[in-house]
Amino acid sequence: MSGSAAQSSQGGIWAVARAIAWRNLRTYVRRPELFVPSLVFPLIFLAAFAGGLSALGGAPGFHFPAGYTAFQFVFVLLQSAMFAGLFTGFSLAFDFESGFARRLMIAAADRRGIALGYALVALTRATVTLTVVTGVALAAGMQVTGDGVEVFGLYGLAALLVFVGYGWAAGIAFRFRSIQAGPLMQTPVFLILFLAPVYVPLGLLKGWIHAVASVNPATFFLEAGRGLIAGRPTQLALAFGLALVLIGLFSLWARLGLRSAERGS
């Protein structure tokens, strides 16, 4: 026993995180009902917004050098990133509801590894989705006028938003430990995203929607992302700084949520 016990040093935070990521991704690819919608919905959004609303690209005052498809692509890309995080929160909530999370809570010496593991899952899921969305957009003729560094920056911003979405959703999942908390995770993100300048630049919005969009954090992410793909970087410090601040806040939110789950309260 002692020799065997010595073998089992019990995983630290990274061992736990890797194990959780391995399991979730294995399950993810075996469940088409999970991964097919996560790929199809962004493509539907891209087709509907970039294709169906492409005439908006010719509206007076609309000057976007990379074209309307690229303009909408940035929205779909950043939305997909945030939703990859959100849907991973759903998975976490489901694991609590099904009882599987108990296995994780009792086996993980360092339970922060649980939160980190699902974060890795979110990032991997997002990578798959963003790759497919990018491939389809390029095949559809999207122009990218930014250089390699700027495009890298765009995907970097998307990666940060994966963690923003995940941190928010994980905090809810740890607290409610039920998939019924799904709308609570999703609704605020939907509202924030669609109260941003989705279809036209901020300057073309009028009235209350302009006022709301002007202070909406999603606007800063979209403006920065669109600037990067078009090769006209703008508001980068604000967008990246804000994303990092939100990650910090939502990490704390998720950590406190994990404590709540540990207390069973």
């Binding site: 089992s8 061992a15 194990a19 399950t27 075996r30 599987f100 086996a107």
Partner: peptide, 19 residues
């Protein structure tokens, strides 16, 4: 607390990795 989409062998690997 089992994942219906994993096999017994995969569960053992997962549990081992967690530890």
């Amino acid at each position: 607390a089992l994942d219906p989409y994993l096999s017994a062998r995969e569960h053992m690997l997962l549990q081992g990795a967690l530890h």
